[in-house]
Design a protein around this nucleic acid. Sequence first.
DNA 1: CTATAAAAAACGAGCGTTCGCTTTAAGGAG
DNA 2: CTCCTTAAAGCGAACGCTCGTTTTTTATAG
Lengths: 199, 199
Amino acid sequence: MPRVSESHRAARREQILAAGRRCFTRNGFHATSMQDVIAEAGLSIGAVYRYFGSKQELVTAIAEDVIGGADGVLAGLAREHPDTGLAEVLEHALEFVDAESGPDGALRVAVQVWAEAMRDESLAAFVKDVYSRFRGHFVGFARRAVASGELPPDADPEAVASVLFGLLPGYALQRILTGGPDRATFLAGVRSLIGLQLR
Amino acid sequence: MPRVSESHRAARREQILAAGRRCFTRNGFHATSMQDVIAEAGLSIGAVYRYFGSKQELVTAIAEDVIGGADGVLAGLAREHPDTGLAEVLEHALEFVDAESGPDGALRVAVQVWAEAMRDESLAAFVKDVYSRFRGHFVGFARRAVASGELPPDADPEAVASVLFGLLPGYALQRILTGGPDRATFLAGVRSLIGLQLR
DNA sequence: CTATAAAAAACGAGCGTTCGCTTTAAGGAG
DNA sequence: CTCCTTAAAGCGAACGCTCGTTTTTTATAG
């Protein structure tokens, strides 16, 4: 099919990305062959290579999608609830973690990306960039918490943000690796320790 | 060299394990070939295959070593300081994280293991087992904190433990992926949020 | 001598990728 | 509308290579 519409091309690209993501979720980047992705997409070798010049390109696209997606969610949270307290923000963030913790969730790919970032410098740079911005959202939340009196005036927003940010992978890994505590229990633990007013 | 001493055999095994660990730290499990490990160990194919029947066997041995090692450290902490408060325990644990965060540290392999556990059921079972025990140590610390009044009487030790446990990978990932906050800053954030008396 | 650790050659399978062929939709000429 | 040209989309056999592993050979400690 030549001279195909732009929307057709975009759809094909999405089809390949979705197939790759399913494969990588199931089996990781390295144990998934291009044949696997190609079969999952129901396309031919040539078709896939027209859209992604190499396996690395496909891996990178999916990795950036997954990592960037998480940042997008928190950015959305910051935009939609500009006056929310730390407690509620944390709860929304953990809801997002739960939603992506299933066998098809993005977190399984995220763990693969973390591992891949150990050996791929450019991917590491991307992750560092996105996660720094991600943590930046929490700095904003923490500043407002200091201003509103939710946190003591001498609290360092950067320091608080790094703890709140850290709670997310901490919770996510427990869910994925150990089956972990449910969100309510984890939040109860945070409440006991922190004394934030969680609803 | 036939009929070699037991200590010789143990040393050779360690030599291979150490070489494998360096390779896997540098390049991950899948991007490291047996040839890489063999060259790093300075041995021959036959020698390595005498000690480990397959690559999977070597990977499993190293993965279990790394994951089990972390649990051993916390178990040692629990044993040596049976009356330590939560704050000091957390500080010791973060010190351990820092010590293993470097380019040759165990954490880089730990991330690989997490990723591998996404696709290897038996490794996943092992990690779940060890990390559940790991969290169990924190439950013990939390119980003592409730008893000593460091935590309010209605605090759920299981819930508190899951948060404290979660802080470790949360801090570790920030250090590894973003360069993250230093330990003092992170602890300051914990102090602001939690109000534990950290020295 | 003998048993076996170590070395090394060799193997088949499967990898990512290339490349030339075929198919098909778009667009202009009549 | 119909036909033809054209260029891109799609295809899949084949390639070179590297993988993990097996098998064979060599060397030597006991």
